[in-house]
């Protein structure tokens, strides 16, 4: 039986909502030592990803650093590729290889975020496959 996204995804998700302010988003990113955060609506629907680059681009849009409004709502990346719970590990690996994504959100049939697969999750998985051999 194929390994599926739901078998390898992390279900401990730290997410933010679209109305999160830049300052709050910075705090969540730094305190949780992550480089990106899934953005979900109050009903749990996945709508995008906020990356560190998104924040830098938003800040750079201001004339000077003194003009930056940190109380502004985040400008996050929409139209993000996500996978279903039933997507196979091989398909996930292909997506990682072809798209250079750092993370892949896993959504259910209703578009709700149920997990996330990061490159680190893949590294851990590969290590144990190497360690356990053909067991």
């Amino acid at each position: 039986m194929d390994t599926l996204a739901k078998n390898i995804m992390s279900t401990e998700i730290i997410s933010i909502t679209p109305d999160t302010h830049v300052e709050e988003a910075l705090k969540v990113l730094v305190n949780n030592k992550v480089t990106g955060l899934p953005v979900v609506t109050d009903s749990g629907k996945f709508v995008g990803i906020l990356s560190e680059l998104d924040i830098i681009e938003q800040i750079m849009a201001s004339k000077t650093l003194d003009d930056v409004d940190f109380s502004e709502e985040i400008h996050f990346s929409k139209n993000i590729t996500s996978v279903q719970e039933t997507t196979t590990l091989k398909e996930v690996l292909v997506l990682f290889a072809e798209s250079k994504f750092r993370r892949l959100p896993v959504v259910n049939g209703k578009g709700r975020l149920v997990g996330i697969i990061t490159r680190r999750d893949i590294m851990r998985l590969l290590f144990y496959r190497a360690r356990m051999g053909r067991e």
């Binding site: 390898i8 998985l125 496959r129 356990m132």
Partner: peptide
């Protein structure tokens, strides 16, 4: 044991 190995092979330790 096989179940535990499978969990590990899925990257969950």
């Amino acid at each position: 044991r096989a179940g535990m190995v499978k969990i590990l092979k899925n990257g969950k330790n």
